[in-house]
Design a protein around this nucleic acid. Sequence first.
DNA 1: GGTTCAATTACTCGAATGGGTAATAATCGA
DNA 2: TCGATTATTACCCATTCGAGTAATTGAACC
Lengths: 210, 210
Amino acid sequence: MKKKNPIRVMLVDDHPAFRKGMAALLESEPDLQVVAETGDGRHAIELFRQAAPDIVLMDLRLPGMGGVEAIIAIRKEFPNARVIVLTTFDTDEDIYRAIQSGAKSFLLKDTPEDVLADTIRAVHAGEQKLPPKLADRLAARQKRAELSQRETEVLRLLVKGRSNKEIASDLFVAEDTVKAHLKTLFVKLHVQDRTQAAISAVRHGIVQLD
Amino acid sequence: MKKKNPIRVMLVDDHPAFRKGMAALLESEPDLQVVAETGDGRHAIELFRQAAPDIVLMDLRLPGMGGVEAIIAIRKEFPNARVIVLTTFDTDEDIYRAIQSGAKSFLLKDTPEDVLADTIRAVHAGEQKLPPKLADRLAARQKRAELSQRETEVLRLLVKGRSNKEIASDLFVAEDTVKAHLKTLFVKLHVQDRTQAAISAVRHGIVQLD
DNA sequence: GGTTCAATTACTCGAATGGGTAATAATCGA
DNA sequence: TCGATTATTACCCATTCGAGTAATTGAACC
């Protein structure tokens, strides 16, 4: 028996099996109801319009549109939308971008069911809940200096394995300019050399390895 | 109605929701039956003894014991065990190690249900089936020269961001020795410098970024 | 016993990298 | 309009790195 006002949940995840299982888990809670599900970010937006869920459980890696963009798009149209990110990937940068984009919580897919249900209820009640572990990660990310546009480009090329000279010609600037950017990058990333910078960029999710 | 001799499947994956959903998907096929499931690699081994499944669907990232080790352990005791790897992670090295360890197939979690069911049937019939995309990846891995023990250690330290001098003192050898290893590493990995080598190691899954 | 391969070290040399310092121009928010 | 940030370039200098070449040792394999 459902209560009169169950919390209406929408699932966005590209694994059908996961959606199915998650739906079953959630439905076993008397106050939760799965009202919509999809594996596509773009589809999620129009589905939100139709289903008007109380809570969205959103994966980050989605075909077509990324999870963060989907959150931004939804919240642009529905500023009160309550989105919880539920994903396997958890770099500092992922967490940071998700929260920045307006997500109310961030959970990993191996989160115990009871914690998940509690988080859904808490977020539905208007709270913003983060597991302590991830909150620490977020704090770590916050402390890290913001990279400028140009620095990010240089870092991206660095991760592609390009030399200073190559990066310079890629960006149509002098090699000394690239060196200058690298110097500030090293400081901001707390590293000593380019290899550490490249690894750090990948580890923190600043640059994707795709 | 089940047939008299359904294919008995065991699920090993640390996400309860995924197990639940996958079980439901598989059970919807009349000739498939989920007879056991667990989220733990070590537990999988004794569960195999009890349940004697025809097919094991195995994730690679598991708490405690890794998926590859679990496959090896199972096949040591039951050389005829038919294991299909079902995972989100798909570096060349992952695929390679899985097949080396005796897995009969390797699928990604977003595999369409019908393909999955067909693969289970094919493997149960004794075939070794790989999606063309992953077969290519495996071929790419096969072409890559095997790294020696020492080279792998050097690469691991390189990915940790250590300099030649540091790697040398870590391994109690001369810096020239490290340089020599790096030279052969560059050739084997088809790269020009240490940064590319580090990225390549991570991208191919030779070194984990944990 | 010869061969192949991994591991080790050494030496040279040129190129790439990183640190320090500094100057200029543009943009931007207060 | 002033200070801050960003982007740009330049120069110097020490260190690190990478390529080439080569030799030795020990284990594994046949």
